[in-house]
Design a protein around this nucleic acid. Structure first.
Lengths: 124, 124
DNA sequence: GCACTGGTTCGACGTGTGTCAACATAGACA
DNA sequence: TGTCTATGTTGACACACGTCGAACCAGTGC
């Protein structure tokens, strides 16, 4: 259940992860780079998903139980659906712990997306 | 043709612009904040738009003529359509200069989005 | 004024996406 | 074992989105 293989924006590089794409402002993205990065932006392009993601990211320890964050105005199947989308996009990972399922956000993904936007100003 | 009123993620604060929303990791976003921010992520959630945006952002001076960036594999009407979407999302501004139309990216928008993702680490 | 080039808008088509109700599954507890 | 709660999955629906061709507007140059 490591994070490397499920994060399309990142690639394992031995001791950690590296961004898939150069900063947007550095050079025009190739079609492949754009497709990879767009998948993640798209995942955050829904208000419900953004709220869910923010709820998880801001929760203590960077992880939250579904039961803690499912109050976003949609039915529970829809919440589950969106969480799955976020997981497929590589933004969240999930883990079952007894009765409840916990979702957690990978800080490295946030950092990679930040770098994509602001270029070199976001230090490692 | 100022940038303040057309940038949903930002709000004019006298001498510049400020982010609309707190970092994702700070606290759960409200529905309103999520709707605002999601609009921009959604705009970048399409590979063609992402390439167009990157092409403009990486062009010298942060601006580019449509003729310079319309080689992304779709028809010109589609390019125009996507540029309009990016403009509506507040990521680009356009200006006609003689025969050609130039699009430019607002650096402050990129910085605001970066902050949204990585919190305080992305300085102004 | 007239033709030409660069961009945008319009109308239409097929596909993708968000949503829900209903059902299925996993673990806890008795 | 059986039942109850917590999540995930399935199927179906309406709506939004990306794409294109055709028509339309804005400047330029003759």
């Amino acid at each position: 259940m490591s994070n490397a293989k499920v994060l399309p924006l990142l690639e394992a590089d031995g001791q950690g992860v590296a961004p898939c794409c150069p900063p947007l402002t550095e050079r025009p993205m190739t079609a492949k780079e754009a497709a990879t990065a767009a998948r993640m932006f798209k995942a955050l392009g829904d208000p419900v998903r953004l709220r869910l993601f923010s709820a998880v990211a801001s929760h203590e320890g960077g992880e939250a139980c579904v039961c803690d964050i499912s109050d976003v105005g949609v039915s529970q199947p829809t919440v589950s659906h969106h969480l799955k989308k976020l997981k497929e996009a590589g933004l969240l990972t999930s883990e079952r712990r007894g009765t409840w399922v916990y979702y957690r956000v990978e800080p490295s993904v946030l950092a990679a997306m930040g770098k994509l936007l602001v270029g070199a100003s976001a230090a490692v």
